[in-house]
Simulated assay, not measured.
Amino acid sequence: MNFKSILNNHVCLLMGLFNKIFGTSRSVEEAILNMVSTSDLMSEEQFWLIIKSSYDKAGGEFEEQKKQLRKLLQRLSLEEIVIFDNRFRQLRGQAHNWQLWGVVYIINGGCSEDCFMDFRDWMIAQGKQFYYTTLHFPESLAEVDTDIIDVDWEGMGYVATEVYESLTGHEDFPSDYMEEEKISGIAWNEETDDLKKMYPQLWARFYVGAAS
């Protein structure tokens, strides 16, 4: 018996044991065994339809939207869940730029790197039109209801991996996609008056302590 056969036998035994303990269906077992780590992206058309559906079902309420997105992703195949998440991270990485971060920093009265990532998750959740308008014209955020600064932006970026784990019992997410982590654009320094000079009107309107 060759190594591959031995390995397959061990995998089958382990999956059989997993099934007895946790009741995983045979179809899920087979899907897990056949999953290959991928960097493929879901089409933007399909991705944005899912996001829009979750937004509409939630009536625009962010916490409810995360619940609705979970339900929608649970209907997809495991591979579709992975490529959905890859597309999500591609869009989040695409919005990783200094200009947008600066505007969010001013409107929010400060914004750490983690905060900015959470904001980009929320930004994607608002839908295609909002995402691309904000991406290309960050100052358009000034026209949005300022209640957005009271929203807990965190969580949308974890939904796909949480759904995958709940369906498979596996924490290892089979994705090779590398999100863009290098921030683009011209850097600003929060310890100076860079942002005040870059966006004087936004600074005067939103930033806490701007009058000083």
Rank of each mutant, 00 (worst) to 15 (best):
D56L: 13
K57P: 01
K57Y: 11
A58F: 04
A58R: 01
G59V: 02
G59N: 04
G60V: 06
G60M: 05
G60D: 07
G60K: 05
F62Y: 15
E63Q: 12
Q65A: 07
Q65L: 13
K66M: 14
K67A: 10
Q68N: 15
L69M: 14
L69N: 01
R70E: 14
R70N: 12
K71N: 12
L72N: 08
R75H: 14
S77A: 10
S77D: 12
L78D: 03
E79G: 09
I81T: 05
I81A: 02
I81C: 04
I81R: 04
V82N: 05
V82Y: 01
I83K: 03
F84M: 08
F84K: 01
D85N: 14
F88Y: 13
R89D: 12
Q90P: 04
R92Q: 13
G93M: 10
G93K: 07
A95R: 02
A95L: 08
N97I: 05
W98H: 15
Q99R: 15
Q99I: 01
Q99P: 03
L100R: 02
L100P: 01
G102R: 00
V103I: 08
N108Q: 11
G109H: 07
G110V: 05
G110E: 08
C111D: 10
S112R: 08
S112D: 12
E113D: 14
D114A: 12
F116P: 00
F116A: 11
M117G: 04
D118W: 15
D118T: 12
F119E: 00
R120V: 14
R120Q: 07
W122Q: 01
W122M: 02
W122C: 00
M123H: 11
I124Y: 02
A125K: 06
A125G: 07
A125F: 03
A125M: 09
A125L: 04
Q126R: 15
G127Q: 08
Q129D: 15
F130Q: 09
Y131G: 06
Y132R: 07
T133I: 10
